[in-house]
């Protein structure tokens, strides 16, 4: 222990030395003769208490922070899982709906629906050229429509439609198809037909539903044809 005390004393001297002004140096040099022991430094009780407090605080802060971060990460993981589940459910729902749409818009479903509405396939494609209103093709009533209806369809669709009033966007590169499947009103369904403006027959962007028919041509087979 004594050596430490000496060392402290020496260190004290050495450390202080550069800070001394010239006259002090001279004074010290004189005092050098009376070298004596210095009492050991007593630990400062107050500052040690502060130190412990600070360390504890840091530790506690670190622990709490860790806890908060971990909790929030775990919470995040739960949220992610919940959201994933929701996403999955929504995706599945979307797919189920898309599948439904695909099935409903398949040609066979459309044909069925069209027939339900009383539509029949057209046997003669007829076009109106725009501008000019020239009728291309031979308009002919579709087989299977009552004659009065046929007359009305023919009148509406082919002859009295004011072609020049049609928006030009309706014109395809070559003309407008009007030979599409025409609705044939059945009992009590007349209202439906009247609600449809003649123009609705001639939207060329919509695929016209032409469906199976036994075909008048099969009945025309009176004479055997040879090859």
């Amino acid at each position: 222990m004594t050596s430490t005390e000496h060392a402290v004393a020496v260190i004290d001297e050495t450390v202080s030395a550069p800070e001394l002004t010239a006259p002090q140096v001279r004074k010290r040099t004189r005092a050098h003769a009376h070298l004596s022991l210095v009492a050991p430094l007593s630990p400062d009780r107050a500052s040690r208490g502060t130190f412990v407090l600070i360390v504890t605080a840091i530790l506690a802060f670190a622990l709490i922070t860790m806890l908060v971060i971990n909790t929030s990460l775990a919470q995040g993981s739960f949220t992610v899982q919940a959201l994933r589940g929701e996403f999955q459910a929504l995706q599945e729902n979307e797919q189920a709906l898309l599948e439904e749409v695909a099935a409903a818009s398949a040609p066979i479903a459309l044909e069925y629906r069209a027939r339900e509405l009383g539509m029949v396939p057209s046997s003669t494609p007829v076009f109106i050229s725009v501008p000019g209103g020239q009728v291309l093709g031979k308009p002919r009533p579709a087989p299977g429509i009552a004659s009065s209806t046929t007359a009305r369809i023919a009148t509406n669709a082919t002859f009295t439609t004011d072609v020049s009033s049609l928006p030009t966007t309706f014109a395809g590169s070559r003309g407008i198809a009007v030979g599409g499947s025409a609705p044939s009103p059945r009992s009590g369904e007349d209202a439906l037909w009247q609600e449809l403006p003649p123009r609705s027959l001639v939207a060329p962007d919509q695929p016209l539903v032409v469906v199976s028919d036994s075909g008048p041509d099969d009945q025309l087979m009176a004479e055997p044809v040879v090859d």
Binding site: S122, P125, F127, S129, L136, G137, G172, S173, R174, G175, A177, G179, G180, P204, P207, L208, V210
Partner: peptide
């Protein structure tokens, strides 16, 4: 012919 909008 109708579907492809090919007039006579």
């Amino acid at each position: 012919l109708q579907a492809r909008q090919i007039p006579p």
